[in-house]
Write a protein that binds this DNA or RNA. Structure first.
Length: 883
RNA sequence: GGGAGCAUAGCUCAGUUGGUUUAGAGCAUCUGCCUUACAAGCAGAGGGUCGGGGGUUCGACUCCCUCUGCUCCCACCA
């Protein structure tokens, strides 16, 4: 194998990914083992990998690989989402660039283009995930518009329709005049927008003629005055009581409208008078319903004024606004204009200003479904991680509104409603069945008379079935049907890893569908990742250009390095501030592992070599240290603290294994190693690789394959994850003391300018006992540690304390007494202050009486330790002054 | 406007029912080293009183109140 001093991921990663694929290691089939299942949050089929995907999928891969090594039958189902709005927008844009307008195509032609686009660009993102090392079961790759999955969507629609939960109604929807579709509330982004508040004069009517009295009404949308149906005042507003029963004339049109009263109007906003425009404002629509006002829709689907507007017909709404403002000014209707900052809704997909618009849409009743989905989270049956999201979840589920599921698009599952010529309709999964049903209500009808609804279903109406339909697409819509073998085995899935912003669109709805069709929750844990931001805290976006290309990043730093870089700084639910330096850290770690391996593989076992005492120390200690770390990692994992778990391992490898263990275990220059130490080292390294594998799959496979002779078809992926076998806390404490002694000696060497090669002696007091002295001798380059009653007869040298133990190094150079005295004085001062605090506590009767015994005992120990330390320091001080 | 959350070393974050924490880690910084696995490295060092104020308690980073600053979600008053 290549043993360059630098680890080169590029030569390793593709090789092992191909090996894993060739051997079908990622593939899962139901068997006797316990399943561990994750379904991927399907990225948009046209999507390109971004840092958010990287984080999300790295976490999934860590969980899946770990479960696999814990002996579970792990299955990670990949796939893509057809994302109707986003994809259709892309296809439309692409056609436009080629000079083809969507409007010039038939539905079938357009869909052909769309499928062609999907064939070509769809699933790029899945290929990119392979670079990351994602151990998805690619044989199970699904697409939400695969024929069986689409059928599941249709069956679901029919099911809910027949259950009476789906209805068709006129509703005020968020209309996207560019996308020419209704979008859900969640797809509307409100942005603060600079606009003007226009104060318009509405004249009172005298028998249909303009009187000289007027009232002033503030509006931000003067272009909608033609659709005004009333003027509204608050019944409690004394200023306008005289208006009761009066009629008002719409400016420019001189059309008469009534004055109505409604609590909705805020008296101290604007002028306290509100123009009511039911067709073009949600609140006005509701007022209109209460007061039976006529609805006059003057804006068409493209956002242009239609003929009902009477004036400015055909003008686009914003152009119309400019023009009408000019007209109002000229004709004396404009009282004043103010700058105004307000929240305006924009379409998430097209960034067009949303137009509230009345239209005939399909809705799904949510209250019943939401109640069930709320309960399982409230009861803790489904855990949200972190659980602070429960509050947000509850709030949403308690205030849920009916779900508008129709979209005026072509790309997606077409609504299976078939209209009869007279406007009645039937809902059936297929045209054949619809025809049968239609004949029952209209016997003479011909097949070709039926016209299918033009709309498609909201994308989330297919993704909410995902955890079910990837296994058993025949199940949705049929709660009583037996689940197939796959669904019975893999469902419910275990963990779902996703972003908090789709907690409601997707997670909540999957819970609803799961409950409805299987009677079970779809997953037990929902791990919510944060948003990946740049180091300045800005969201990564194309416009800012602050998002690194993941593929380039992996090329430069290696997939393992990138994974580690992301994981080190992520905690559930928190945004991550991404910076290249983290990825560098990951790369450096991979290199460290690589070089540790280089050291070990260069060792030669000598048959006659015997294990040194310090090597025995190292092996005994690391055995305990390793097990303690495993315990810590497992505890963190149980709480989904992935980053803590990785950090514990990082330190174990870098500090404990490399800096301490290997330094002790490695044979002296030019010598061979004994078989016991060698065997132990290989065993430890093997365990470390396994622990590391979920985080860093590539380098660990590479090194594991080389560590010992492996057969074809063997993989670290299926090796057993090490578990904690217990440890000796005393041994660990002894070694910690040894480490501190070594560090003190090194420190003294550095400050006194003593070369590390120069061998020193070390005295300790007789009370110091340790099993790890041999390690100190080796690492601090000490010839012996001799125990003494006191250091009084030692003249030149340096002393130090570890815990309460005193040590002395005889030296033939003078210590700088002045400096030393100052240092000791400072330490005494500090300790005395500390002791004072402890004494105060202990002399407080209430503390001694109330605090638990263990706490008091701890304070007593602190007290005596501090006293001992101060005493020791004072002795040293006396000696220094005497000398 | 309603709701939720956050504020701990230069940066990113831990700190698990208040007491083994005299507040930890990683990165960054500083000093000295090309020491025969690794300069993507080694050895060592410095750095915070836990946003401000008040309270509860024998004891508070940890609980309560309040102020300040930030983030997110929901609703969007024309």
């Amino acid at each position: 194998m290549n043993i360059s001093a630098k680890y080169d991921p590029s030569s390793v990663e593709d090789k092992w990914y191909a090996y894993w694929l060739k051997n079908k290691f990622f593939h899962s089939e139901p068997n006797d083992k316990e399943p561990y299942t994750i379904v991927i949050p399907p990225p948009n089929v046209t999507g390109v990998l971004h840092m958010g995907h990287m984080l999300n999928n790295t976490i999934q891969d860590v969980l899946v690989r770990r479960a696999r090594m814990k002996g579970k039958n792990a299955c990670w189902v990949p796939g893509t989402d057809h994302a109707s709005i986003a994809t259709e927008a892309k296809v439309v844009a692409k056609l436009k660039a080629e000079g083809i307008e969507k409007s010039s195509l038939t539905r079938e032609e357009f869909l052909q283009h769309a499928w062609a686009w999907r064939e070509k660009h769809g699933g790029i993102i899945l290929e990119q995930l392979k670079k990351l090392g994602a151990s998805c079961d690619w044989e199970r790759t699904k697409f939400t518009m695969d024929e069986p999955l689409s059928r599941a969507v249709i069956n679901t629609f029919v099911y809910f329709y027949k259950k009476g939960l789906i209805y068709r109604g006129v509703r005020m929807v968020n209309w996207d005049p560019e996308g020419l579709t209704a979008v859900s509330d969640e797809e509307v982004i409100h942005k603060e927008t600079r606009s003007k508040l226009y104060y318009l004069r509405y004249y009172l009517s005298e028998n249909g003629r303009k009187s000289d009295k007027y009232i002033v009404i503030a509006t931000t949308r003067p272009e909608t005055i033609m659709a005004d149906a009333a003027v509204c005042i608050n019944p409690a507003d004394g200023r306008y009581h005289y208006l009761k029963g009066k009629k008002i004339l719409i400016p420019l049109l001189n059309k008469e409208i009534p004055v109505i009263e409604d609590d909705y109007v805020t008296m101290d906003f604007g002028t306290g008078c509100l123009k009511v425009t039911p067709a073009h404002d949600v609140n006005d629509y509701e007022i209109g319903l209460r007061h039976n006002l006529p609805v006059l829709d003057i804006i068409d689907e493209h956002g242009r004024l239609n003929e009902k507007a009477v004036i400015l017909v055909g003008e686009e709404r914003f152009a119309a606004r400019k023009k009408i403002v000019e007209m109002l000014r000229e004709q004396g209707y404009m009282e004043k204009e103010e700058d105004y900052l307000s929240q305006v809704g924009y379409s998430e997909r097209t960034n067009a200003v949303i137009e509230p618009r009345l239209s005939l849409q399909w809705f799904l009743k949510m209250d019943e479904l939401a109640a069930k989905a709320l309960k399982v989270v409230e009861d803790g049956e489904i855990k949200l991680i972190p659980d602070k999201f429960r509050n947000t979840y509850r709030h949403w589920m308690e205030n849920v509104r009916d779900w508008c599921i129709s979209r005026q698009l072509w790309w997606g599952q077409r609504i299976p409603a078939y209209y009869l010529p007279d406007g009645r309709f039937v809902v059936e999964p297929t045209l054949d069945e619809a025809f049968e049903a239609a004949r029952k209500i209209m016997p003479e009808i011909r097949r070709e008379d039926l016209r299918q609804d033009e709309d498609v279903l909201d994308t989330w109406f297919s993704s909410w079935l995902w955890p079910i339909s990837v296994f058993d697409p025949e199940k949705p819509g049929f709660p009583d049907r037996e689940p197939n073998r796959e669904l019975a085995y893999y469902y419910p899935t275990n963990d779902l890893i996703t972003a908090p912003e789709i907690l409601f669109f997707w997670v909540a709805r999957m819970i609803m569908a799961g409950e409805e069709f299987t009677g079970r929750i779809p997953f037990s844990n929902v791990y919510l990742t944060g948003i990946v931001r740049d180091k300045f805290g800005r969201k990564m976006s194309k416009q800012l250009g602050n998002s690194p290309d993941p593929i380039e990043l992996m090329k430069e730093y290696g997939a393992d390095g990138v994974r580690v870089g992301m994981l080190l700084c992520t905690t559930a639910g928190n945004d991550i501030m991404f910076d290249k330096s983290q990825v560098e850290q990951g790369r450096n770690f991979a290199n460290k592992i690589w070089n540790a391996y280089r050291l070990i593989q260069g060792w030669e076992v000598g048959p006659e070599s015997r294990q040194n005492e310090y090597q025995k120390c190292a092996v005994d200690w690391f055995e305990s240290r390793l097990n303690k770390c495993i315990e810590e990692m497992d505890a963190n994992f149980a709480k989904f603290r992935l980053s803590d778990s990785l950090m514990a391992l990082y330190k174990l490898f870098w500090d404990d294994f490399c800096a301490w263990y290997l330094e002790l275990a490695k044979p002296s220059f030019g010598e061979k190693i004994d078989s016991i130490t060698y065997g132990a080292t290989v065993k430890f390294f093997d365990a470390l690789l396994k622990l590391l594998h979920p985080y860093m799959p590539f380098i660990t496979e590479e090194l594991w394959q080389n560590l010992e002779a492996r057969k074809e078809g063997e993989t670290i992926m299926f090796s057993e994850m090490p578990s904690c076998k217990g440890y000796d806390p005393e041994l660990l404490e002894d070694f910690e003391h040894a480490q501190q002694i070594v560090m003190n000696v090194r420190n003294i060497r550095q400050s006194k300018g003593i070369a590390s090669k120069e061998r020193l002696s070390l005295y300790c007091k007789e009370n110091y006992r340790s099993k790890m002295n041999a390690a100190v001798l080796k690492l601090a380059n000490i010839d012996e540690i001799s125990a003494r009653k006191s250091f009084d007869d030692c003249s030149m040298g340096a002393d130090f304390m570890v815990s309460t133990y005193e040590f002395f190094i005889p030296l033939n150079t003078h210590v700088n007494a002045g400096e030393e005295i100052e240092k000791i004085n400072k330490e005494i001062e500090y300790l005395e202050k500390f002791l004072k605090g402890v004494n105060a506590k202990l002399s407080n009767e209430k503390f001694v009486a109330n605090a638990p015994e263990s706490v008091v005992a701890m304070e007593r120990k602190k007290q005596s330790d501090a006293q001992t330390k101060i005493e020791n320091l004072k002795n040293r001080l006396c000696k220094l002054i005497k000398d």
